[in-house]
């Protein structure tokens, strides 16, 4: 089938502002949008720039706006979006070139959540691992699925307004560690979350939940963080 793909283009060395270019390529309905982008780059215009790495929905590199919705190009089939496709960079982050955005503000916010296990207590007597029951693991299982693709954060109206807001992905990271029974850093993280740009900026628009390619219930996770701040319960 013939696919018409309209792609946002911006070259900071030549363009004052972004524009769209349209390409027509032959593709199968079971091909992915990423395949179509590769066809355009390989056969039509080698200057097209976009991020991709694993191409199997694990690395989170190729989050982009496809027909107005944040998706991973490697997980989106042509048959699901139709033969007329518009591809744009994710919103709220500065465009570096074409579909590539500057992810630094996103990762700066991520780092503020202290995304590592904090536990200064001595190891158990056997000197091995800190054990955890299946129930304790299940408590934060969903938030471990995050691949940091930024689809959620860049679909959030509060983040569009200001990239100072930590954003859903960072809050999911906080959730992943705060509710981990082995972690002792909940107090530090909750203090970060209670700042002006923390959970208070979430207005439960649910865009993040809808955008997440890993089907994480992000708004629910943020709600659990808010409740943890009020009740102190982190089990």
């Amino acid at each position: 089938m013939e696919v018409t793909i309209k792609i946002f283009r911006y070259n900071p060395e030549k363009d004052k502002r972004g524009h769209y270019e349209t390409y027509k390529v032959e593709a199968h309905e079971n091909d992915r949008v990423l395949d179509v982008l590769e066809l355009v780059k390989g056969h039509k215009d080698g200057t097209l720039s976009f991020r991709r790495s694993c191409a199997h929905g694990v690395c989170g590199s190729d989050a982009m706006r496809i027909n107005g919705r944040n998706m991973l190009a490697c997980k989106t089939l042509i048959r699901d979006v139709g033969a007329n496709i518009t591809v744009e960079p994710i919103m709220g982050l500065k465009v570096a070139k074409d579909l590539i955005v500057d992810m630094n503000p996103f990762f700066d916010n991520y780092k503020k959540m202290l995304p590592y296990l904090i536990n200064d207590n001595p190891l158990p007597a056997d000197g091995k691992e800190r054990l955890q029951s299946p129930e304790q693991r299940a408590r934060f299982d969903e938030s471990t699925k995050c691949i940091l693709c930024a689809a959620c954060t860049t679909s959030c109206p509060s983040f569009w307004a200001s990239d100072e807001y930590y954003g859903p992905a960072a809050l999911v990271t906080a959730h992943r560690f705060i509710f981990d029974s082995r972690d002792e850093g909940a107090e530090q993280r909750l203090h970060v979350l209670s700042e002006t740009n923390g959970t208070a900026r979430c207005h439960t628009a649910y865009n993040c939940t809808e955008a997440c390619p890993r089907d994480i219930q992000i708004t629910k996770a943020i709600g659990e963080l808010k409740m943890a701040m009020v009740t102190g319960k982190i089990d």
Binding site: R182, E187, E195, G198, A200, M229, K233
Partner: peptide, 24 residues
């Protein structure tokens, strides 16, 4: 394995002005 309930005291929950007003 840690099994006791984990509840942070009020002073450790990040009860800032923002949080209080969110609850309010």
């Amino acid at each position: 394995m840690q099994t006791k309930a984990r509840t942070l005291p009020l002073s450790k929950r990040g009860m800032s002005f923002e949080t209080v007003m969110w609850l309010f």
